[in-house]
Design a protein around this nucleic acid. Structure first.
Lengths: 363, 363
DNA sequence: ATGAAAGCGCTAACAG
DNA sequence: CTGTTAGCGCTTTCAT
């Protein structure tokens, strides 16, 4: 039964040592059974004589056979992978603690469902990247559903959920950015600050897919403005310092501000990582936080509490955001979503040591 | 030419609105051409009359067609995805700054080659997880090539590179852990410390796939021991405090040590995140670092310099490790690797403020 | 208990 | 310039 495995010139034996993967047919031939039997041995062993199953499995193992995941996915219409798509480069995603925490949340539910997580590289077209990705569904961060590239996905029936973006058709998860920003700015105002600058996301006019400014960035700005109005401080767009979303970006903005001669008593930042850069650059420049300058961030990434001084910031539940997004996506894929699912998670001001009343200012 | 798209009962029209993805055949029918023509329109437009291409593309767009990535991958024997496999849960990977930096390095080269990055969930069998993953190759972190589950991959001709693990057949990237650990311990010894405890990785006997202790963990321990020998301090396995690889793990170990009445003058840690937990717990307990306790980490994750006080640690080039691993993997996949490729990257002691001479100790 | 045959959706020789 | 045909590797009725 079955050709002896070690027969020197067995075609299968030969293939095993060539740079070609072993297919189901090779195993079948070597085991003297049909491909069907091999498939059964792997997928429904009960349908086969258990001795046969053993033999097949053993031969498969010897040959180093494993079912081709693409062929499987093609047939099963599912791969066990969900993707995260966001208009940023892969390295900048992984360098960003916000995304680490977000991935952690998504990872929790992936782990529970034994799914893997694909972080998608978007070099050119978003929709193209999405189309080529071997995923069962997508979590799209920082883009609006109405974005032309995203509408394509809708037409393609690719299941996706929107995070940090406007959405009515697709499920979505957002946090109350406006209110968080309002709290942050109000807190500063109430502490007596009247000379405040705001580090904002950059508006990248060249990238049609960057909607940050109309999404999260805009909402945070709206919150700042509302607080200013309410606090009786006229808003001026000159308060805005577009800053790269990174530690070094924040540091550079601080240096730029100081170099220009401006001496605000407080800095509002739309992201903790920028604020951390400010802290660092301020320390280097001998500017004391919070004595000389109050700094307030946004996100409450884990390291916000480790900074020196610990960062006052607006907490958003990043991990939960990831979890909810993943949960929503799985429900969508399983067709278990009845009705709209647009979540709005709360934000909360966390006062730590990087802010203080303006009256304490040394000069 | 081609059925009117909006004809109410066109089969394709119907499908478009059902929950079924549009296939190449649907586009072909609607455009009145063969599937081949549609394929050409997407993949080699030059081979078609440009008017035809336009028409096909337009119809494809209207229908919301995109080639099925699984079918494509099956045929092309490539998906444009590389995977990272490590015997840890997805959330713990993303929560770990070491992996963030590592992913960042891998992400740099992925981005350059327009590849996506799959972080694989390993619930049960490693080899099974690897087999089911739709990837062109794997970066395996923290496991030896000789591990039985990994040997399977070798037989399956799955291209992979080993990181932080022993390897002779597969390409690999390691850092000089032993020497780094030696430097760290020697530094402490030379600073007069004689009462030192070491936070080590946990040995998980239940998980056959956790080789940490025989790999990186063992090498770091070896370095510590050599330094002790050389420093004339007899080594005792009692110095070892197995600690979960997390901030909270480190904090708990600190509390455990203090609760047990031990008062070492210095703590050696095999990972920065554990050391950060120590710093935190020490601050909470009113133990001053470095006055009461010197703490030294390993890895030099980005946040090591932000801790309070900034952490003395052994730097390993994490980002470069990821980069090199990815580069090696791509070369392997492209069959451009001639001869063995086993990289050993250097480590370096970075002295910051969490350590000082023992003579300064207050008691 | 096992196998033959059809087909998942796509691409690429090879014809015409 | 366009279509026919034959798979890629696997699963799964349906038959035996």
């Amino acid at each position: 039964m079955g050709v002896n495995l070690v027969k020197p010139f067995s075609k299968t034996f030969y293939k095993t040592f060539m740079n070609r993967k072993v297919r189901i047919e090779d195993v079948a031939r070597e085991a003297g059974v049909s491909p069907t039997a091999v498939s059964f041995a792997f997928n429904s062993p009960a349908r086969l004589n258990s001795a046969t199953v053993q033999r097949i499995l053993k031969i498969a193992d010897t040959l180093g056979y494993a079912p081709n995941p693409h062929a499987r996915a093609l047939l099963a219409r599912s791969v066990g992978v969900i993707g995260i798509l966001t208009p940023q480069t892969l390295p900048s995603i992984f360098a960003n603690p916000f995304y680490s925490a977000f991935h952690e949340g998504v990872g929790q539910v992936c782990e529970a469902h034994n799914l893997s997580l694909l972080t998608i590289s978007v070099s050119q077209s978003l929709s193209e990247a999405a189309a080529n990705a071997p995923v069962d569904g997508l979590i799209i961060v920082g883009l609006n559903e109405r974005h032309p590239e995203i509408e394509v996905l809708l037409r393609r029936k690719m299941p996706f959920v929107i995070v940090d973006g406007d959405s009515v058709v697709a499920p979505s998860v957002n946090v109350d950015d406006e209110s968080g920003a309002f709290q942050a700015a109000s807190y500063l105002l109430e502490s007596g600050h009247r000379d405040i600058l705001a580090l904002t996301f950059e508006l990248d006019y060249s990238a049609t897919h960057t909607d940050k400014v109309y999404g999260v960035g805009q909402r945070r700005l709206d919150g700042f403005k509302r607080a200013f109005e309410q606090g009786g401080l006229p808003w001026d767009d000159e308060f805005l310092i577009p800053t790269p979303t990174s530690v070094t970006g924040g540091a550079e903005s601080f240096r730029g501000i100081w170099a220009s001669g401006k001496r605000p008593t407080a800095l509002l930042s739309v992201a903790d990582i920028m604020a951390i850069g400010v802290l660092e650059a301020a320390a280097d420049a001998g500017v004391r936080v919070p004595d000389d300058l109050s700094v307030i961030g946004f996100d409450d990434i884990p390291q916000a509490k480790w900074t020196n001084p610990p960062l006052t910031t607006v907490r958003q539940p990043i991990l939960e955001k990831g979890e909810q997004a993943a949960q929503l996506l799985l429900a969508l894929i399983a067709n278990e979503l009845t009705g709209p699912a647009n979540l709005l998670l709360p934000t909360e001001l966390i006062v730590r040591a990087s802010t203080q009343e303006v009256t304490h200012r040394k000069d």
